[in-house]
Amino acid sequence: MLSQALAELNPKMSAALDEVVVTVERDALLQAALKLRDDPGLSFNYLMCLSVVDYEDRFEVVYHLRSLAKAHRFALKVSLPYDDPRISSVISVWPGADWHEREGHDLFGVVFEGHPNLSPLLLYDGFEGYPGRKSYPFNDYQEW
């Protein structure tokens, strides 16, 4: 069903431990998100978690989705190049992504295009660097 719905977006399907993982291109994200939410058979209306993972050569943005009506869930992944971490914001699809995206921008420097307000959320204004990234030193701290 998933593969049918997302067929034209060229998804890569794989299976993690207990759930299906689908990887899509970043240009196809918004389209896929809308489909996932609005397809009556899927109706993933609840974005459980939005995580950014730094793999040092690439970023992965992982959307854990769940449908409350159908009681199923899966993970949607988008891979981003390390030097150009731009991705479209899904805030128009799942408004609950708001602070998750701001946090991703804050800690990892991923730019969520279309997000209305990417101002620092957890960090203070003027913090330098992206402390979530692997390259950020562990014992470093900044005086404020």
Partner: peptide, 13 residues
């Protein structure tokens, strides 16, 4: 990598 999805964070939104 360990990402936490804190309920209070999402509720506060």
């Amino acid at each position: 990598r360990l990402k936490v999805r804190p309920p209070s964070f999402c509720n506060l939104m």
